[in-house]
Design a protein around this nucleic acid. Structure first.
Lengths: 124, 124
DNA sequence: GTTGCATTTAATCTTTTAATTATAAAATTC
DNA sequence: GAATTTTATAATTAAAAGATTAAATGCAAC
């Protein structure tokens, strides 16, 4: 039902306020009124940030009575991890990479550029 | 060395064009004229994106004759990895987390909400 | 020196984003 | 049903981002 990335993950986490929101909602389930007390902005502004996070699938909503509680949904961050995994070798094996790079610059390109982007399994 | 993050990493990688740039410069060292051929925008626009990446410390510059070659510098992405590592347990141990969550949901939640509500009432 | 190429900077424009206040809608409590 | 609380929506404003064209800087070759 939820967690369908209409919004870009990278863009969703680009904003520091939204990162704080994720942090706050990591282990708690809170309504907007409570959340907005932690931030120096209006409820509406917080609500909009939550909407963006929601559209990115990073937070889930649950209606409890007349309040709507938000909670972290970390799964979409896997995409970020996958993206990042490509670059890990560049700092982990930096010395060997550099050596390899100097040795055969041209051919090394192809091998590294080939990316196997795992298609994610169909979530509902 | 150099490359002190004037720009935010999260913001730097938020733009899809800049992510493509990183990808392109991962294993190659290229000048702007060559780079901009891969993108449907002007050299100036590409140059600006490169500047932002440079200020975030994600690309390095090297002058070769009259051209300036750009190359990936992946080290600042470690910050991203660290940020991400906090959230990994939320999808890796999802089942156990969920269990933990359900167990303490009522008490933890109520405590927060009520304390907040009391605080507000006493404020007025 | 001058010419030619690569790149950056400056000024400008358009679009997006973030925030506000005010109003409306939904649900609980009396 | 009326009042209160929680949240969402609308209209608006201000700031930031992305891109463009045109002018300027830097270097190498002549």
């Amino acid at each position: 039902m939820s967690s369908q990335p209409k919004h870009d993950i990278f863009q969703a986490i680009a904003d520091p306020t939204r990162r704080q929101l994720l942090r706050l909602l990591a282990d708690k389930e809170l309504p907007v009124t409570v959340i907005s007390k932690h931030f120096p902005m209006s409820r509406t502004a917080v609500s909009k940030h939550l909407r963006i996070l929601s559209e990115a699938g990073l937070v889930g909503e649950q209606k409890v009575g007349r309040e709507k509680r938000y909670r972290l949904q970390a799964e979409p961050l896997i995409e970020l991890k996958q993206w990042l995994s490509f670059y890990e070798r560049f700092w982990e094996n930096k010395i060997s990479m550099l050596k390899h790079f100097v040795e055969n610059e041209e051919t090394a390109d192809r091998k590294l550029v080939t990316s196997d982007r795992n298609k994610r399994e169909s979530e509902e």
